[in-house]
């Protein structure tokens, strides 16, 4: 069972039940915050805030538009974080969740640098800091429950299920929606495909989703380079050996020419 979530932004009313449910289930502390320019708070995710609803309030053609975007780990199919983790702490599980094993994490923050969505966050205030992010409520889904956010959402804006089924459902909804939805499933291809996907009733630039992300799996970029290594190393080895052989042979020939005499 490879699970995922489908977030239907047309149903989100910004109640933030999901934001609180995540805090409660994961026993995360409240952060010191201050009023922002809109209602988004905490204004950025952190090691202690794994999901937020981000407000975007603007005017389009003289009409006010207000959207609410749920942010958090997208649980990529081929996560950059897993690929760069030098401690082998990050793992894309069979059930779809991308988890960080805190017994192995050394807090090097490579995953924070590698993630195109800015998801993993550092425990700045801890003496032994580790990386934190949404883990798709791993223990809940293993126990047959939904993630806390999905279970809480009053409007079923957050659906939990098999990723493939949710992708099909998303496309059905768009097709049957009579123009209600933008014809795009965010996460079908972004970063090579993610387990947490979005559909939207407004153009994506009216949400806070990152629309500037590659459609190739991020590890595939390093793979392009890494893939050359055997050939490169092999060629370098062959070249070096060749040079050595040539150099040795020249030395031997020079020595022979100076008169077969004493060495």
């Amino acid at each position: 069972m490879a699970y995922g979530m489908l977030i239907d932004l047309s149903k989100c009313m910004g109640c933030r039940g999901c934001q609180v449910a995540c805090k409660q289930w994961n026993d995360l502390p409240g952060e010191q915050t201050t009023l922002g320019s809109d209602f988004t708070n905490p204004q950025k995710r952190s090691a202690y805030t794994w999901t937020t609803i981000e407000w975007l309030t603007t005017e389009v053609d003289g009409r006010t538009v207000s959207t609410f975007t749920k942010t958090g780990c997208l649980h990529c199919l081929q996560p950059a974080c897993e690929s760069v983790c030098i401690a082998g702490a990050i793992h894309k599980q069979d059930n779809g969740a991308v988890t960080i094993d805190h017994d192995k994490c050394i807090g090097c923050r490579y995953c924070q640098l590698g993630c195109p969505f800015g998801v993993p966050k550092y425990e700045y205030d801890q003496v032994v800091p580790r990386m934190q992010k949404c883990n798709l409520c791993y223990s809940r889904i293993e126990a047959g429950l939904e993630p806390a956010c999905a279970a809480t959402c009053p409007n079923d804006a957050i659906l939990f299920g098999e990723r493939d089924e949710l992708l099909a459902l998303a496309k059905e909804r768009i097709a049957a929606g009579n123009g209600r939805y933008v014809d795009h499933v965010y996460g079908e291809h972004e970063a090579g495909g993610t387990s947490v996907m979005y559909i939207s009733h407004v153009p994506l630039d009216l949400t806070t989703l990152n629309t500037n992300v590659t459609t190739e799996a991020v590890p595939s970029f390093t793979w392009k380079a890494m893939r050359q290594l055997p050939a490169l190393v092999g060629s370098a080895a062959v070249l070096s050996l060749g040079l050595l052989a040539y150099s040795n042979r020249r030395a031997r020939l020079e020595a022979e020419q100076r008169g077969g005499g004493a060495q």
């Binding site: 933030r16 934001q19 609180v20 409660q24 409240g30 009023l35 209602f39 708070n41 905490p42």
Partner: peptide, 26 residues
């Protein structure tokens, strides 16, 4: 009113998970 607080805030303004979302009067 807003979702995050309730009435005179007697309860909600003493709950960190709610206060962090809506800390201040505006």
């Amino acid at each position: 009113r807003v979702t995050e607080h309730w009435q005179s805030g007697a309860m909600t303004r003493s709950l960190p998970w709610l206060g962090e979302m809506m800390p201040d009067m505006f």
